[in-house]
Design a protein around this nucleic acid. Structure first.
Lengths: 217, 217
DNA sequence: GTCTATAGTTAGATAGAC
DNA sequence: GTCTATCTAACTATAGAC
């Protein structure tokens, strides 16, 4: 029994199958959590056999770690994009909208991440945690500078970030509850489980207003 | 093999053991999710043997359902307490503070519930879902009336509730991330995992300001 | 690269003695 | 009411043929 090549050049079929596996695994892990997911489910979802999946990845944990690392990276990216030389309120509002758009376009990633945090972030490496902390610290510093310059209302930078994360990610993580409450009278749409466009437009408008009122000096 | 009495009178020892089991199960389920939890863990945590646990409850699912039903009830309670004849802004602010206090005092319940929603609310009965929907609908109606009376700024009632739930529950559900970011330089405290008093005071102040600014007409 | 077969664990639940 | 022993099913992972 051989194993797939690591970082060296991968064939077309290898790239395709790895992609199939990761896509299927994202479906399964985000819906059932790590322990609730099985290789059988990932195999069925991807159309590959179980041993074949273990040919491409070292095991269940390796697939999960791969997804988690990617999600962490895309989670940090928009934070870095905040421009300390830009208009303070507009920079924050833009960040809120970016995060909300991520919840709309990548709800499975958000849910996998939420699951991981909820259960104590056991599978996130100390290095990743340190990176997160440093980046958040730098962002808090940008916010503090804006406040001292009188360009932003005086708020605690950390709790501002918590509030933004919570209220934007909520639309992905608590999607099943939102659907439960708003009902889905939209019978026209194929009910695949995602929230409809209109809900996100309303969320967009609401959060814009909420954070604008909070932050305008 | 016999089974424990259902609703009829239970002995002291029965009440005590059921309580032990539920307390242990809350620890375990909130930390690992449904599928990630085992009867062995609940047995060890409660100090009872596995068969003994199955003497008191019909199975793993029954224990979970019992906890979930209680959590749902305590989740709905503060919503009903909102008084349509009270001061609009103060009523909402009081609700926010109540929800935040619940996150502080009962973080495990919040996390068990979040886990359940995150994974699609599969184990919540249709009846409970309907009850939730009706109660939220009634609350939205109270908020709409306040807005029409000019006592509250014009906001979407549903998205207001989503924002409140998200930003208060965040302190329980994402506790591990908050700890990660705020660090715990508080070496004096026995680090059992919970956020310290100071963090909740800051959250209290922040959310008070956020929703006051949003809602004051 | 992909498959069938299976080893090795772990988990939920039950039987039956005490 | 509580325990030891055990059954059965599910799951990760590996062996080895093709």
């Amino acid at each position: 029994m051989t194993t797939a090549p690591k970082t060296e050049k991968r064939s077309r079929i290898q790239r395709k199958n790895r992609k199939l596996i990761l896509e299927a695994a994202l479906d399964v892990f985000s819906a059932h959590g790590y322990r609730g997911s099985t290789l059988d489910q990932i195999a069925e979802q991807s159309g590959l056999s179980k041993p074949n999946i273990l040919y491409y990845f070292q095991g269940k944990e390796a697939i999960y770690q791969h997804l988690l690392a990617n999600i962490l990276a895309s989670w940090l990216e928009p934070l870095e994009a905040i421009d300390r030389d830009g208009d303070a309120v507009e920079e924050i509002i833009a960040y809120v909208q970016t995060k909300l758009a991520l919840s709309q376009q990548h709800p499975r990633q958000s849910r996998l991440f939420a699951n991981e945090i909820l259960q104590g972030a056991r599978r996130i490496s100390q290095q990743s945690k340190d990176e997160l902390k440093v980046l958040v610290e730098a962002t808090a510093e940008k916010i503090r500078a804006w406040i001292e310059a009188g360009r932003l209302a005086s708020v605690d930078p950390y709790h501002l970030l918590f509030s933004i994360w919570a209220s934007t990610q909520h639309y992905a993580d608590f999607e099943s509850q939102i659907t439960m409450i708003l009902g889905q009278e939209t019978l026209g749409n194929a009910q695949v489980g995602a929230l409809d466009e209109q809900t996100f437009e309303q969320a967009h408008a609401f959060l814009d207003m909420q954070f604008r009122r909070l932050l305008t000096p």
